[in-house]
Design a protein around this nucleic acid. Structure first.
Lengths: 233, 233
DNA sequence: TGTGATGTATAAGTCTGACTTTTTAGGATC
DNA sequence: GATCCTAAAAAGTCAGACTTATACATCACA
């Protein structure tokens, strides 16, 4: 799924990044480049490049005479796909999934509304195809096939919104949906109501009915929130 | 406002980053590290670190025997605060502001709804204070004072939502609001209706009325969209 | 003519060692 | 006790040599 560590510095990041995001080095911890270089058995220049990347993600801050300090969690670039992957692979995976699901619930309905206005004929067709694929795989424990079409469906919606910021969340949504299917409790077939909603969203988008598309998508995301017990009493 | 180029590699990024995001090097363009190092009069190691940062932002891709290739715009990490700043400083500033405003319109209402449920007493007090500050500076061309309280208001909402993904958009919102006041057409005093809405949102959050807080905030963001002529007929 | 193996040039990748610069801690001085 | 000075520590910078992957061209063979 993920690109396997481009170069030596990439391999270092593959273990150092998750370690930091997992809180193994609590905020305020100070690391030294030389020591890290020894620990990972790479040259200083390679380790420096790795630190630069962590710094650009706002995970650490490098200062003279002090060292490489781990930043507060609140400063991290939590939208960086790499950071998201690291956190999803770590201990606070549940919390991360909840945060991302709430984010989805805010974005996707609006994206669907915009998609109803801006989607091309090709995108409408693709959307319908995805929805039909979901229907076709909604029974008889075909979870993998269902997931593929589900992910594709939401990607099309986000892309068709015409907003680049929304479009870039395709990977995040994919990660959340995949995570739900693979790691969370989901042995049974998907909720038939959810499947129907997807089909209806595709129809609404094709019909150019923005209000309806937004409303239906909101129902989908409410369902996602309920699965994680995120809802007001 | 922004940290002025930490280190030599940071200074290089300050001119190379904006150049790439501005499309000065179109996607597919190939740069060579050595050549760049010469152009910027820095050593190869410094230039390599700069390239690593650009690579972590998915602005470029570095491959052996080929060079440093500029990626498609659709691959960029558009949520990276640095990338956002670079783009806001460049030619496609208007488009960027529109994208971010649409993003706001999706996020902030949901954030306000969550804030109504999760805001602490301190946050409620701060919110009220901000709203009152906005009222106090809403007449007589006190745009700067108004802006400060406006930015603070939205930051509190996002933080009080309790969602880390929302909280991290505080800087983005600040950038959009500041941009609107400073660069766009805004000579007149703010719309009184908008000021009232902010006060009402503060009240709703304090009262724990999530639905009302969300609805009122949606009205605010609709106003922001209308200012940029983003709305369906 | 097309296809597959081979070779080569190229640019990134890596390592090392020496040097510079900034910043902080701690001591000396008043 | 406050201020200044000194020394050490760690990141930062640079130059040069070497390694490695790989795109591309060349050539042999079917």
């Amino acid at each position: 799924m993920t690109t396997p560590g481009r170069g030596l510095h990439g391999q270092v990041l593959e273990t150092l990044g998750p370690a930091i995001t997992a809180g193994e080095y609590p905020p305020g911890s100070v690391l030294r480049t030389d020591e890290l270089a020894q620990r990972f058995e790479v040259s200083r220049s390679v380790m420096r490049e790795a630190v630069r990347v962590l710094e650009s993600m706002h995970l650490v801050e490098s200062r003279r005479r002090v060292g490489v300090t781990v930043r507060q969690k609140s400063e991290w670039n939590v939208y960086d796909p790499q950071v998201i992957r690291w956190r999803l692979a770590g201990a606070d995976r549940p919390g991360q999934l909840r945060s991302l699901t709430v984010l989805r619930s805010a974005i996707e309905p609006v994206a669907a509304g915009l998609a109803a206005k801006h989607a091309t004929a090709d995108q409408c067709a693709e959307l319908t195809e995805c929805a039909l694929g979901m229907v076709a795989h909604s029974r008889g424990h075909q979870l993998e096939g269902y997931l593929i079409h589900d992910v594709a469906f939401h990607r099309v919606i986000l892309n068709a919104s015409g907003n680049e910021m929304f479009a870039r969340l395709g990977d995040v949504v994919a990660e959340v949906l995949t995570g739900r299917t693979h790691h969370e409790v989901m042995f049974e077939d998907p909720d038939p109501a959810a499947v129907t909603l997807h089909v209806q969203v595709a129809e609404a988008v094709r019909a150019g009915d923005a209000v309806r598309a937004e409303h239906l998508t909101r129902e989908i995301t409410v369902g996602a929130l309920q699965e994680l017990d995120i809802l007001a009493p």
